[in-house]
Nucleic acid binder design. Structure first.
Lengths: 102, 102
DNA sequence: TTAATTTATTATAAATTTATAATATATCAA
DNA sequence: TTGATATATTATAAATTTATAATAAATTAA
């Protein structure tokens, strides 16, 4: 049903939907910050925790969202978990944002 | 008070806040579409209405938000109101998005 | 084994955003 | 002046997002 509805959309509407959905993830300050940090390379959850202003639990949830979207991927090493950017388009976007706004 | 809090933030936190806030505006499909349309040049509310999937009232409200953020500006001509992109950074961002995702 | 550390999960309260309906205002044409 | 058209405003219901607290699970060190 929602699939059918999506298929009815014009290509432009569809693009707007796709891209806006993805931008929603970047529209939260701490999530954006996480992606910026990771654009500089891999980091453990603990390292990210120190550089964002989130509680442990909250950070974990936000990381989950980014992972669910396929933006980041993880690697386990002992009891640490390292995350890194997984989507090249997101990497490009972060770079564009830095170029334009920072 | 909230000002004081903002001043306490590190420059990086501050950037994340600024930019995420602005991305929030682009993270709504029809708002993003409006900006994309306007990146192709001026358009009247009525023209925008025909190319988005919003009610008249809803469109007006969304346009208001974009205007309040300084993303777009208006010009009145008779009973029509024309809007156009007002922020060069937003224009650049829309172009980047199109390049990366479309 | 026990305790400490690192990360995830679940439930939920609080805040914000989105959408709808009703109404208002301004401009023009007849 | 009246009616039609274009746009804005206000109130508010509904949906979504964000944040907090409590708890769980996995790993390592002692």
């Amino acid at each position: 049903m929602s699939t059918a509805k999506k298929l009815e959309l014009s290509p432009i509407q569809n693009n707007a939907l796709r891209v806006s959905h993805l931008l929603r993830q970047l529209s939260h300050p701490q999530r954006l910050l996480i992606l910026c940090l990771l654009s500089g390379g891999e980091a453990s959850v603990h390292e990210i925790l120190e550089r964002t202003e989130l509680s442990q639990s909250h950070l974990s949830q936000e990381i989950n969202k980014l992972k669910a979207e396929g933006f980041i991927s993880s690697r386990k090493e002992g009891r640490l978990i390292y995350y890194k950017l997984h989507d090249q388009r997101i990497k490009k976007l972060i770079q564009s944002l830095q170029k334009i706004f920072c």
